[in-house]
Design a protein around this nucleic acid. Sequence first.
DNA 1: CCCCATGTTCGACA
DNA 2: GTGTCGAACATGGG
Length: 288
Amino acid sequence: MPELAEVELARRRWEPALGCRITGVETHPRTRVFRNCPARTIAAALTHATLTASRSHGKRLFFSFRDPSPPRPHPPTHLEMHLGMAGRLLAVPPGHPAGRHDHLVLRTDSLALVFSDYRQFGRVVLHRAVAPWEGLPPPPLDPCFTRAHLAALLGRQSRRALKALLLDQDAFPGIGNWMADEICWRVPSHPAAPAGTIDPARLYRVTRQVCRGAMRHVADRNPPTPAAEGFTPGRYVRHVPPRTWLFQHRWRPDGSCPRCGSALARSTIASRTTAWCPACQGPVSPRA
DNA sequence: CCCCATGTTCGACA
DNA sequence: GTGTCGAACATGGG
């Protein structure tokens, strides 16, 4: 699921509970999403706390909580989540029972907030610190992600394949496999082309276009919660980018380029299945 | 049974 | 130090 727009959508799904007090916390009896942190520690930190803020940063999510009890200054509580390959955040009716793949359920009076992940590649990390998101590299839609910043990236890693660089979360936080292909296709440039051969201004424009478009089509058009009362996880709708995007064609066995109609090529580049248009982007990997 | 999957991490290796 | 690659993680779908 989750690249930056899906992650932002996940954040919005929990947003209706802003200002709500957590009345109870349930954790899956056998889960690895908390990694080394005992589930009891998570539950203890969040029970009776109030959800005060949330933010998404690339593929990371942060939820901030205010502790009720001690009036003493103490380290703030932040919950960081990563959705891995199959993680989802849902808001369901308050009494909704935890399902087989629900690893964390935060109960409030009006909603239950669920972290669900059947593959368990996701993770949930408890931070007891001030602003754990500080110092992270800027995602493409961050004001700090400037043309100069991108040009410096391309210069520093000029020999790396463009796709490998796009997938590097220290360089392009929030870009994943499908957005990387979408960006290469729009530049247009072969995914294996050395980063140093790419025009920084062009890549900057296309990267921002794809990120903004993904936000519009995926995060903005999918409502945070289903409209109907008595909703269940299955009632969530799913909007994806339109057919003018490579996204809609990349997995079809007979997929063709939405720009020129040529048959798409598919092979493994940067260790990931990659789709591209041989006519628009070149049939083989160019050399530096 | 086989293969694949919008991700990250770790160890091996050129 | 660089950069790449395969395996592992756990589960479901074709």
